[in-house]
Design a protein around this nucleic acid. Structure first.
Lengths: 143, 143
DNA sequence: ATTTAATCTATTAATTTAGTAGATTATTGA
DNA sequence: TCAATAATCTACTAAATTAATAGATTAAAT
């Protein structure tokens, strides 16, 4: 399940991508929170994390707010989800971005669970890393 | 992330499928727990859930224990995961087995998040529902 | 200076996950 | 029929994660 954090984050960044398309300047958290009915203080935390990863850009003070950190066609849904919910993989031993041997696991090579979950991770990553914010707005379906 | 519950459950049921192939009778929880180093009391809960869904069969008393509820080629990984971790879908609005409108969602049809997560759910379901315990033991890769 | 808006520090509430303890019931073999 | 075995049932509890909230601080613009 996608956490509320990731869902809120995606809602907000999709809105930012739409505004970006309209050549709008930065959007304040308060406006984003209101638009998508997200608790403002919670959204602060979320956007800050995305900014720290370079996915968003922020500007303090009057006329400040948040905007995309790079063009919409260079931000993938996978990148956003990973920042907010961690690795896509269902088991850490098949994660590309955060590999870790499973505690229980004796021999990774022969693990049946691993084989199946690797397929799931790979297909999920293909979709989420292959879909950018620009694609999402176009309603483009890649897979 | 797969919960420990689902992981333990998969480990145990894969072991049961292996024993089933050898025409062994029912295996006691204690033996399964020891074999896969799973806390016994926790495994009890897990196996009971799988039994209540008809995936496993149990027998009380001496020479009792757990065995597969139906042939290994009729038990899919998806079925097991759903019982132990709930729906595969990352958002409830794309779940086939447990559909529910998202609280936040205004118009489902136009939701970009939904479109993407539907693709992910579908590809995940194709893999997990398309792989049975028999396939897993054969090392068969379907996708 | 005043206003706007992000950022930082700290806490808290609610939910889910992971596990334990102990009594009870069913089955079998001696 | 009794002792042993093993699942089942009822009832907790501890730890971790998720979802927030509160208030003070810093930066920018007019």
């Amino acid at each position: 399940m996608l956490s509320k954090k990731a869902k809120y984050g995606l809602q907000a960044i999709i809105f930012l991508a739409k505004e970006d398309r309209k050549k709008k300047g930065p959007i304040p958290i308060a406006e984003l929170a209101k638009h998508d009915k997200i608790p403002k203080k919670f959204l602060e935390i979320i956007l800050l994390e995305l900014r720290k990863q370079g996915i968003l850009h922020s500007k303090m003070g009057v006329n400040g707010g948040y905007s995309l950190g790079r063009p919409a066609d260079l931000i993938s849904i996978g990148q956003v989800v990973r920042v907010l919910d961690g690795p896509l993989a269902a088991v850490s031993c098949v994660s590309k971005t955060a590999y870790r041997k499973c505690d229980e696991c004796k021999n990774e090579k022969s693990c049946e669970i691993r084989k199946i979950m690797k397929q799931v991770r790979d297909s999920t990553a293909r979709i989420l890393d292959g879909t950018t914010l620009a694609d999402a707005l176009k309603g483009k379906v890649n897979f």
